[in-house]
Design a protein around this nucleic acid. Sequence first.
DNA 1: CATGAATGAGGTTTCATTCAT
DNA 2: TATGAATGAAACCTCATTCAT
Lengths: 211, 211, 211, 211
Amino acid sequence: MRRIRKKDGIRTYSSDTDLVETRRKEIIARATRVFVKQGYHETNMRDLAASIDMSVGSIYHYVGAKQDILYLIINVAVTRQSDWIDRIKANLETRSATEVLKDFMRSYYTNVEEELDVTLFTYQETKNLDRKSQKTILDAAALDVEACAIILRRGMENSEFKIANPLLMAHDIIVLGHMWAIRHWYLANICTLEEYIREQTDLILARISNK
Amino acid sequence: MRRIRKKDGIRTYSSDTDLVETRRKEIIARATRVFVKQGYHETNMRDLAASIDMSVGSIYHYVGAKQDILYLIINVAVTRQSDWIDRIKANLETRSATEVLKDFMRSYYTNVEEELDVTLFTYQETKNLDRKSQKTILDAAALDVEACAIILRRGMENSEFKIANPLLMAHDIIVLGHMWAIRHWYLANICTLEEYIREQTDLILARISNK
Amino acid sequence: MRRIRKKDGIRTYSSDTDLVETRRKEIIARATRVFVKQGYHETNMRDLAASIDMSVGSIYHYVGAKQDILYLIINVAVTRQSDWIDRIKANLETRSATEVLKDFMRSYYTNVEEELDVTLFTYQETKNLDRKSQKTILDAAALDVEACAIILRRGMENSEFKIANPLLMAHDIIVLGHMWAIRHWYLANICTLEEYIREQTDLILARISNK
Amino acid sequence: MRRIRKKDGIRTYSSDTDLVETRRKEIIARATRVFVKQGYHETNMRDLAASIDMSVGSIYHYVGAKQDILYLIINVAVTRQSDWIDRIKANLETRSATEVLKDFMRSYYTNVEEELDVTLFTYQETKNLDRKSQKTILDAAALDVEACAIILRRGMENSEFKIANPLLMAHDIIVLGHMWAIRHWYLANICTLEEYIREQTDLILARISNK
DNA sequence: CATGAATGAGGTTTCATTCAT
DNA sequence: TATGAATGAAACCTCATTCAT
């Protein structure tokens, strides 16, 4: 008789929490590549198992369902390191909001470039999660906007920026980053990432800089 | 020996072109609602047929495969009326590029609001089409950017605007419109459509207006 | 309300017996070509209708079911003209049994050659008829053997032939004819029809001729 | 990316070659009975699965398609043991061609009797295979004729036999055997297998014996 | 813990037949 | 009488998940 346990709300048959974590990381890392390439619905568990060099049974030891893998993948994709916001705040102590914002956009957009496929994947497949998981993911995704808004608000405080709706402006900054991935099929034909970053930065600053 | 009839590249068993057109329109109109609500993969043909009040057999009388329905739906969603660009050009004869752009953004974004679900659907499900259909769809989608670019270029010609990369700027204008649908789960909490239109218009004009 | 009538045990909606006969003949003649080429199961009613230049509805006016067409086709194929046996008997009045048998084999085998595909078709598809129809067909097919046996028995009567089991011998004569069609994929590589007829005739005569 | 395993040209999801072989043998053995009794087209996969006491899924674990089962069945039916021809040749070392031929016919025809239904089935259903499989089957079937021809040629060498076209004669010998199955509906009424063998043997020998 | 064979419900699509026009 | 659009049951095949080994 199998004993059923849970970790992070997802069923597992193992009681060794560390092992579960290790194996799940392996699964996520490799499954990401497979799902991103072939599509979530288009990949069946047999092929997935073969592609990530595990047995179907093993996968189900560490994960409760196919959808859980999707959740774990997307969750990794939208979750930033925990010290991310702290580092932004630290930067704001020593440098102007404008400078921090420029750096932020550059590093955020560069990160999108590095995770081009996963970013697109997240936009397309999040809908396949159950309601609760979707909420978790969207909340995590919203944190990016909040982080960006911190910079904008600081700039407003010290009169560097003048912004009517800082959350909306932050949102624009974030999604214009995502667009580099989502619309790469078009953008790749009309500019380089470098140009893209420069133009979007200029677009934003032209509007918020307090002259 | 086996005779295959096609209309618009999609198999049909009827030779009555008008009837095919009528029935397909019905299928598209009703299937859009069902797919958008339940998801493409989550809706099976039996349920679809029941929902749109047709028999499964009848659907396959006018359409070759489930995927064809998806294609038809998305194609309708991304295809503008043929006189769309002409109307923009006509407007540019009598009014300033700035005014025309403002109107364009308002009407485009308002249209997104009216087709909120379908716009989101298009972003999520286009990947489920075969390679060739995807190309057709993306090409059609690119026309929106081109249309917007016409306005921008006119503004540049008469020195109303100053823009480094008009296609990229047009692209921003278009996708920021789409974002009202794609990220509605977030935007709806921070602003109204009215505000959204105003802010995005100001964002763009602040950057391109030639002072 | 449709009135249902029958002709030759097969449902029809028409009361005009002659018309039914005419139309059925058309259907049989053309459907034979289609079924023989594409196979009975592989041809659906829509394609059949298109191929024989009739509407599906029309076919069902004159025929009760798809299987009925198969029956009619095979029935034509296995049914000889009614004067066939009479002509054999007449021949036997004036010529030796040996001569008549030679002629019989030549004309029978030549006829197989002319209906190569239909003969094969009959062997392969009779099983798809219902029990009762199969019986009718097999009985009709048995008549060929009986006809041949008449010749053999006449030869035995006048001591031209010496045969232990004339029905079995007649059966060999008939099926060796059919084999020219059934195993044409092999026989065509090793001899001509002319050779085939000569060899089989010699084979039979070597055994039955009373020296 | 999608890995497809094959054994004998037929898809399987198992990599355990022995297991595939075992299970396929089970499937063939039991499916033969079902198909032969009910017909290939008349048996659907659900019924087949129930009849052979396997799940539909399991069948498809070892076989790629319904047609593959048909192929495997017919292939077994037409394939003789590999030492068959060697045994014939060995016999020809010690015994006269006439004796070997008599034995050959007896054992071949007896074998047909033992596989009555399958022999008929093969004649009727081979056409349902794809072109390539048909070729394989027909080539295998042709080997029987070749084997028989070996005996005939030996008899010609040592002047026991005199034959114009040994391949054609061998073909007659083989197909007259098959006819015991194909036309059993008729033959069963006019003679026993014993008589049939005797008569056909006499028929052949009367023609080829060099007196 | 690891494996992969087994399951069977459910997916998409076809097609013989009917019937309103 | 002639048509072909409409029907829906049933076909083949897939695949997430389980569980004996």
